[in-house]
């Protein structure tokens, strides 16, 4: 198993550090040819508008969509979640693969960024440290999408659709690898054969 981490921009090194800690080999993915070597793809936090421009410029949109359609697991954190979404409420390039409507910077500016303990479906063992930085939220989900985590006020902050996982928060900024382990577990990857 080799996990790819989209390395156009953002905190891809932080994801790679978590993968190193749990003993999973990883490669940085910048160009379409890099995708050929990987079995799963993580799209990190960063600036989603920058991801879109770099992905369009180097022909990454179609190969990543094909990767998803082939049933391989793909996970987006924060900007990566926005990049997966079908609808981001404005005109910016995304993959448009996940049937979710997303609102960017939904909690406000940096002064409103927050941390909070979360309960996530599929992630046992007590509250998970949620780090939300100028984070997006999921306003609504399609019928094929399973909500995995909400805040106490009902705001959706994690969801999955088949082989796609999306989180508003940043597991790569914590020292808790449970979401990475969940994403790479057979429990998550078995849906790809569906």
């Amino acid at each position: 198993m080799i996990a790819g981490v989209l390395a156009l921009q953002g905190d891809f090194a932080e994801h790679i550090a978590v993968l190193d800690r749990i003993g999973v080999a990883s490669v940085e993915v910048r160009l379409p040819r890099d995708l050929e070597r990987v079995d799963a793809l993580i799209m990190p936090g960063g600036e989603s508008t920058t991801f879109g421009k770099l992905a369009v410029r180097w022909g990454m949109i179609e190969p990543i969509c094909a990767f998803i359609q082939a049933g391989k697991p793909v996970w987006g954190t924060c900007a990566g979640l926005i990049f997966l979404a079908r609808d981001v409420g404005r005109d910016q390039p995304t993959l448009g693969m996940m049937d979710i409507k997303v609102r960017r910077n939904a909690f406000g500016r940096q002064a409103d960024s927050f941390t909070m303990g979360l309960h996530i479906v599929g992630v046992p063992g007590g509250p998970y440290p949620g780090v939300f930085i100028r984070a997006p939220l999921i306003e609504s989900v399609g019928s094929d999408v399973e909500v995995l985590c909400t805040l106490p006020d009902g705001t959706i902050v994690a969801a999955r659709q088949g082989n796609m996982l999306a989180t508003s928060f940043h597991p790569e900024l914590t020292r808790d690898a449970r979401v990475h382990e969940f994403f790479l577990s057979t429990e998550f990857t078995r849906v790809q054969t569906r």
């Binding site: 390395a7 156009l8 921009q9 953002g10 905190d11 891809f12 090194a13 932080e14 936090g45 960063g46 600036e47 920058t50 924060c78 900007a79 940096q110 960024s113 780090v131 930085i133 100028r134 940043h170 900024l173």
Partner: peptide, 10 residues
């Protein structure tokens, strides 16, 4: 620190 980490590579 985290917001700066989001700016990396940019």
């Amino acid at each position: 620190k985290g917001l700066a980490q989001m700016l990396k590579g940019g």
